[in-house]
């Protein structure tokens, strides 16, 4: 940090992009990046509460969890994993496009990322509908043919809580991508300050990572 410049001494052309509390673009970008990573750490622990509950109940009721997991739709879960991994790749390329100041590619890639997010949500919706018709929704229509349905209901509660919270994150992500694509049309991110694209990318990758864990834990626990 060799930041001795006072407010009025800024002369570089990028200065208009720098908020008043920062000395230069570099410092601003570093702050945003660090802030995003810390936000992601809080997200890890936010989801972590559910992962803890999952771990505890799976260790208490391994058989019920395996049996319940058997009723999830692995095909959709697996396809959705592939979709998210692919969209994450596109997002990484989008960040690169912004870095290279390639406006057209950036907009296309952002839209593609959002598109795959939407596909994910559609598949998820189909799956939820199937869960509903199979009477797997706790409280609302849960019907489990066992004298002791409690643990299976807990499994499906955690399944809906975890995938639901994840779906909320995907939805937010889709809106972020669409907004950024809209903003990118003004050339906002291709003049040197692509930090918003970068941290949106971090967010999208994080949501992807959460799903990477949800897939084996929720879908594959009972399919042997």
């Amino acid at each position: 940090m060799e930041a001795t410049a006072s407010l009025n001494e800024r002369t570089e052309p990028t200065q208009s992009l720098v908020a008043r509390q920062f000395d230069d673009l570099e410092q601003q970008r570093g702050a945003a990046e660090l802030g995003m990573w810390i936000f992601l750490a809080t997200e890890v622990l936010f989801f972590g509460g559910l992962f803890l509950a999952y771990t505890v109940f799976r260790s208490l009721y391994p058989r019920d969890f395996a049996a319940a997991s058997h009723h999830t739709i692995v095909l959709i879960g697996g396809m959705n994993t592939a979709i998210l991994l692919f969209s994450s790749t596109l997002m990484a390329l989008a960040v690169r496009a912004a870095e290279l100041r390639n406006q057209t590619t950036l907009i296309r890639l952002l839209l593609a990322t959002a598109f795959f997010g939407i596909v994910f949500m559609v598949l998820k919706g189909i799956e939820y509908y199937k869960d509903w018709t199979d009477h797997l929704v706790p409280v609302l229509n849960f019907d489990w043919h066992s004298p002791n349905p409690g643990p299976a209901q807990i499994f499906f509660w955690l399944y809906f809580a975890m995938t639901g919270l994840h779906a909320i994150h995907i939805t937010v992500g889709i809106f972020v991508m669409l907004t950024l694509a809209l903003m990118a049309r003004t050339g906002k991110f291709t003049t040197g300050n692509y930090t918003p694209i970068e941290i949106a990318g971090l967010y999208w990758h994080f949501v992807d990572i959460v799903w990477i864990f949800l897939f084996p834990l929720l879908y594959l626990a009972g399919h042997r």
Partner: peptide, 23 residues
């Protein structure tokens, strides 16, 4: 940034391992 990226995971592992040490 590497530290910031790992710290959440480490803390999650703390939560899991100490809770499971009870169960």
């Amino acid at each position: 940034l590497r530290l910031a990226a790992t710290v959440g995971v480490i803390w999650l592992l703390i939560m899991l391992s100490l809770t499971l040490s009870d169960y």
